[in-house]
Simulated scan of single mutants.
Amino acid sequence: MRPARRHAVTWSTAAVSSSGSSSASAAPTSRPAALVASDIGSWPLVAGVELGGTKSIAVLVRGPVIEERFEIPTIGPDETLPVLADWLLAQQARGARPVALGIGSFGPLGLDRGAANYATLGATPKFGWAGTDVLAPFARLGVVATALDTDVNAAALAEATWGAARNARVSAYLTIGTGVGVGIVSRSDDGLHRIASELGHARVRRNDDAFPGVCPFHGDCVEGLASGPAISMRTGRAAGSFDPADPVWDDVAREIGELLSIITLAVSPDVIVVGGGVGLSSSFPRRAVVEAAERRLGGYLPGGRSVSDLVTWASFGADTGPIGAAALAYTALPSSPEPRGIMQAQVAAA
């Protein structure tokens, strides 16, 4: 079990125009990060669960601040889900009373509450999880207000609510880790809207890259070519063990760069936030990926912007996913302390 990561918070207010731009100067998008919140005490305690391809995390959160955190490897559903639920039950026994639960899970995932497959995983590359109801094991918590989405959409919501995309009209979150996924959030006068995407399984143009890919469904989709397991299969080494300038990244950078260009053309985002274990590693070739996207676009980007203007990195690092699950939990409440205007906060790890 990892100790909770706490943050020192200093709050200031800035109004947001209907276009999504702030009337105050934007705070930095890396730590210390800009967050959306009012007084931290006005946020009720909620629980969040992130089900990732490699690890799963349960948290207790107020606003964007993790108060308690628990992490285990993602094994099978019977070895993972009850353990997370047991930890949350133990927190309740100690006096914690989360008023809502949010779950962000790898997919594909049934998200229609009126459908028979709600909360149920479909044909997922994660062995043994297809057909699993990811919400049912948490029913014994007695938390009525629940919200569910894919893990990448949850991360996208965290960044749009409290992080690097807090001023964006449309934002995308690209995670590169055990899998590759894209979450999309649009902002309107009545709040933030999440859009389901499976762009991580898109196929891209390839040069002389003969690697067949590891995706059990598509072989050489982006996830099959550029996820952590794909890089390990290509090289026999972990993705984080390479220098960013190592030629082993050449094909991966082109393929991720093309995915960035697809995201840019498909949804015209104001910002693309990159996260995930591979995407945030010190070995990831950030410049090469951005340059590859620029080449694929060939200068075709409205407003005279460049891909380097659009791309930034996850504000909350490895905690973006569980904080996103908490952001989902707040959407399940009939009312939330989240203001229509941006309340910016400088956050520094304490």
Score class of each variant (00 low, 15 high):
216 P>N: 06
138 F>G: 09
189 D>I: 08
143 V>I: 15
225 L>I: 10
141 L>C: 08
157 L>P: 08
178 T>Y: 02
191 G>E: 03
141 L>S: 10
166 R>F: 08
191 G>R: 05
182 V>T: 06
168 A>R: 11
225 L>D: 02
184 I>P: 00
120 T>L: 04
138 F>W: 06
202 A>L: 15
210 A>S: 14
166 R>V: 14
146 T>R: 13
213 G>S: 12
216 P>K: 10
197 S>Q: 05
141 L>E: 06
166 R>M: 13
158 A>K: 03
205 R>S: 12
140 R>N: 01
217 F>D: 07
183 G>H: 04
193 H>I: 06
134 V>L: 08
111 L>Y: 07
148 L>E: 01
171 S>D: 03
170 V>E: 04
160 A>E: 02
121 L>Y: 06
203 R>N: 11
217 F>A: 14
210 A>I: 15
153 N>D: 08
118 Y>T: 09
183 G>P: 07
119 A>L: 02
155 A>Q: 08
110 G>E: 04
201 H>Y: 06
125 P>Y: 01
198 E>D: 15
137 P>T: 05
147 A>T: 09
198 E>W: 01
133 D>T: 11
109 L>E: 01
177 G>Q: 03
129 W>T: 03
201 H>I: 12
125 P>N: 05
142 G>I: 11
184 I>H: 00
153 N>S: 15
220 D>R: 12
133 D>F: 08
212 P>I: 15
129 W>Y: 13
216 P>G: 09
187 R>G: 04
179 G>D: 02
141 L>Q: 07
137 P>E: 00
180 V>Q: 08
161 T>S: 14
199 L>W: 12
143 V>D: 02
112 D>W: 04
162 W>T: 13
115 A>W: 01
193 H>A: 13
153 N>R: 12
144 V>N: 05
142 G>C: 10
178 T>M: 07
125 P>M: 05
217 F>S: 13
193 H>Y: 02
202 A>V: 15
225 L>P: 13
205 R>G: 12
199 L>G: 08
147 A>Y: 01
178 T>A: 07
178 T>H: 03
223 E>V: 07
160 A>D: 05
192 L>K: 05
215 C>W: 01
158 A>T: 12
143 V>Y: 01
109 L>V: 03
143 V>T: 15
130 A>F: 00
124 T>Q: 03
146 T>Y: 01
154 A>G: 15
124 T>D: 01
217 F>L: 14
130 A>Y: 00
152 V>Y: 03
172 A>S: 14
159 E>Q: 14
152 V>D: 07
216 P>V: 09
209 D>P: 14
180 V>N: 02
204 V>W: 05
226 A>I: 09
127 F>G: 04
198 E>I: 13
157 L>G: 07
131 G>K: 07
127 F>H: 09
149 D>N: 14
109 L>T: 02
212 P>L: 14
220 D>V: 08
195 I>L: 13
219 G>N: 11
116 A>G: 12
181 G>Q: 02
225 L>S: 07
150 T>A: 14
173 Y>H: 12
155 A>N: 11
157 L>F: 10
141 L>R: 09
147 A>V: 07
164 A>I: 04
208 D>E: 15
119 A>E: 00
121 L>R: 02
213 G>V: 11
220 D>E: 12
141 L>A: 09
187 R>W: 07
181 G>H: 02
202 A>C: 15
231 I>G: 00
